[in-house]
Design a protein around this nucleic acid. Structure first.
Lengths: 229, 229
DNA sequence: GCCCCTAAGATACGTTGCGTTTCTTATCCA
DNA sequence: TGGATAAGAAACGCAACGTATCTTAGGGGC
């Protein structure tokens, strides 16, 4: 699943441009195989057209199947989009360790910005827009946004290394703060649209996130000056 | 405009519940009068149904007019929604001055949370969702989100009073930080849905915004210890 | 190896809602 | 008072959602 995902991530999007959809008119796929093909197609449609032009017809055509097959699995457009997203969320790789807090943060933000994308933000917006009609979707979306995820752990890791290095005092890291990089990047996507380039990331880190970390309350449970190794 | 708006703000929403729309079948309104009636109706529809069920038909019916009249003024549903929003944005009142930074901030956040609303956040999402088809909308929305507004000024004011009181060192306040209260509240609406209650506001202030302010770089242009009065 | 039952695939349908077109008619202004 | 202007009404084309109906492939039980 993951490998086929990686393989197709953009190239699939590119090569199956317009005409050659139906991959194999002979055999009739079933179960997991079909489902994977549909999710691949859905992701490609999302990447190409964004959620605004993400249509069930388009996905069905691209996957070489038909709408009822989609609706037997997902009850709405929004659910299919979220499922496609799910199927492509990359496993978060290791936390960068550059030796300095700022560089670690920049690397982290850049990873978030790349992982999230214009498309994903637009999709969040679109799904939110559809959510009024399918209230059950809101739960799914919200959970996806709130889940602790490997990101918050990564932030914790980066911060504790900075503490160990003496770049920061021992701090208490509230969940909101650990989540903030994702929120900041998403907010940037929504309000500024285009790509979040490294200049913007620099501003986010220098103007907002580093000050925030430096201003956090000290952790009373840590011995000041003796960070645990 | 403003008074008729206030009058209708919720009560109109309530009383014109289902049947009695057309306010006056005799006279044919024109120009500004008609426009105001349409915007009132649009705002009421937005408040009642949210953007997801905000339809041109609904607005036209409620305003006692017809779709072409709407399209002669606004080129799309999204534009009408934004115009309705515009027509209701309250003039930001004065900055609270409670004597303490934290209380000032809580008051400010609460005002932002009340001014923004679930509806407005959902609307932002919905407009974003429509934006792919009407790219010109993105500009309008973005400008609305980015504009310095009285909020950033209010933040500046609150902060400089705190500096004068000695609660903060003289700090340089980047635009991103001044904008942050709005971003934080909006983000909260999007990710957590329901109302942003005072408990959440307390967390935002205590866990995020106060630490952020305390961690800001000092303003090199200010004499430390001698804040200008 | 045969048959049946599940589910895939195709087609067509009903519905909603956008944005448009056409036409009639009221109201303002010269 | 008459003509330009814009309101109001009705209907249309179109896209896309979500559904219903039907045929048929193919896997699994016997």
């Amino acid at each position: 699943m993951a490998n086929s995902a990686d393989t197709a991530d953009v190239s699939d999007t590119a090569d199956s441009g317009a005409g050659s959809r139906a991959p194999d008119p002979k055999t009739r796929r079933r179960g997991a195989e079909l489902e994977a093909a549909i999710l691949d197609a859905a992701w490609a449609e999302l990447s190409e057209h964004g959620y605004g032009r993400f249509t069930m017809e388009g996905v069905a055509a691209r996957a070489g199947t038909s709408k009822p097959v989609l609706y037997r699995r997902w009850s709405s457009r929004a659910e299919l989009a979220l499922a496609a997203w799910d199927s492509r969320v990359p496993v978060d790789p290791d936390v960068p360790d550059t030796g300095s807090l700022r560089a670690d943060l920049v690397a982290l933000f850049e990873r978030v910005a790349r992982r999230t994308g214009v498309m994903v933000s637009e999709m969040i917006a679109g799904v939110m827009g559809d959510a009024f009609r399918h209230p059950e979707i809101v739960q799914v979306l919200r959970q996806r946004l709130m889940e602790p995820s490997s990101l918050t752990e990564a932030v914790g890791e980066v911060v504790s290394r900075a503490v160990a290095r003496g770049e920061l005092p021992p701090v208490r890291l509230p969940h909101r703060v650990a989540r903030a990089p994702l929120d900041l990047v998403r907010n940037e996507f929504i309000t500024c649209g285009g790509a979040v380039d490294s200049h913007v990331i620099g501003e986010l880190v220098d103007e907002v996130y580093l000050p925030l970390l430096r201003g956090l309350d000290r952790d009373p449970s840590a011995d000041p000056g003796t960070p645990s190794s």
